[in-house]
Design a protein around this nucleic acid. Structure first.
Lengths: 229, 229
DNA sequence: TACGATACACCTGTATACAAAATACAGAAT
DNA sequence: ATTCTGTATTTTGTATACAGGTGTATCGTA
């Protein structure tokens, strides 16, 4: 964490956005552990930026709930429990279920084609065991699927909650023995959408989310064990 | 909107927080209409603060989805549709339902007593027809009720979504013919919690939310009419 | 009159400067 | 030894300065 250099200046994004993304990633991956106090001058120096954009990034993180602000003491990275994971998945499941009928209803052949295209890419990554790329690709697939529902706010809430557990689900995907089996289910999900089989779609999605939760919880517990030594 | 002075310096909050609260309220009430471009120097001058805390407030509003950021053009107040209201209430209903069993399960006599205390205050406001205070008080009651569930993230999502429609629900409460009847239902809700009657509690809550949605939609449509002339 | 180039004003993005609060620490008094 | 206190240092909170980009008005030319 000593040298936290920013990605090469994209020049299209404001520095505050890059700082936001960088810090968010570092917090989510655990690179900056919970409880760490983020001293502004310190991190601004590390990133070779001034305090102004850094502070703006911190305000967004604060709004995300990733850091906590204490009056006149700055921000501290927030911790996070098993109950959090349970609640996040409760939210996720409830909202995801709401979108399913809309997905079935709205899905066009073009949507199906695009999903199958994404699945093909997932197939390759899965076969190659490319964990690095697999995790975000799987997330993109789910995101695309849900977006078909047209329920943008719901999608936003789901993704917002998802961010908190990303680091655990990433680990989970990497470890999961049944990863390829789970991946087969992705194909099935698209089939159900294409056939407008809501009942099967719903049942499978619920199972899918439930398993995701279990692996996530396992990853969290392991990380706790690792912390406590 | 010419003179947007800040509330007398509470001195405990940073200026950015006060600016955030002030702007949020102004947007939610419609005082700053959708589509308005917020020019930083302009608003900083009006509020008699510098751009730095104002910008930090804007970053939070951006994260809330109340304003939209355009590269090199600053932020614009976001508009908002009937579909938004529908989706917000869909989210709200789904999540609220999740909390109900937990509320029944967790509610202590102290919780019940506190709710009844809040109801007593609502009674007074309702009888006096004090719309100004009634709206936030009713919100506080619902918030307190939901918080008993201990599902803090869910509560946070619900309240987050709720903010978007606050201005309409405030109008709705003011107009609602059946306001006192609706208020009677608040008493009933607490009764059901006390008696641990989940079925009745659930049924009434769902009806309650549904009606809230209808009045909110009506308020939105009226405001659209007002806009279009 | 229509079109295009140039100049200018405005505004955002970022850095830096300054003020005030909190903390750490050293030394004195008990 | 301990506690209190005054001071130095660190760090946040806010203001201001400056650079660069965008849009617009103006003017010249066809």
């Amino acid at each position: 964490m000593n040298n936290m250099s920013l990605p090469p200046s994209t020049e299209s994004k404001p520095i505050r956005e890059i700082a936001y993304d960088t810090l968010k990633k570092a917090i989510i991956t655990g690179e900056i552990p919970a409880g760490t106090r983020i001293v502004e001058t310190d991190y601004a120096d590390r990133m070779h930026i001034s305090r102004t954009p850094l502070r703006e990034a911190l305000r967004k993180l604060e709004r995300d709930g990733l850091v906590e602000y204490v009056l006149r003491r700055g921000v501290v990275v927030r911790a996070f429990t098993i109950a959090d994971v349970n609640e996040i998945y409760t939210i996720r499941n409830a909202l995801e279920m709401l979108t399913l009928p809309h997905i079935i209803e709205n899905a066009t052949p073009a949507d199906i084609a695009e999903l199958r295209q994404m699945l093909a890419e997932l197939d390759v990554l899965d076969a190659a065991g490319d964990i690095e790329k697999l995790s975000p690709a799987a997330r993109a697939f789910h995101s695309r699927l849900t977006s078909i529902s047209g329920q943008r706010r719901i999608l936003r809430v789901i993704e917002g909650q998802d961010e908190y557990i990303r680091r655990f689900s990433a680990v989970a995907i990497a470890k999961e023995d049944r990863r390829s089996a789970a991946h087969q289910e992705h194909h099935l999900l698209v089939d159900y959408v294409e056939n407008k089989d809501l009942a099967s779609f719903t049942a499978l999605m619920e199972k899918h989310i439930e398993r995701s939760k279990e692996t996530c919880l396992m990853a969290l517990k392991e990380s706790k064990l690792a912390q406590n030594g």
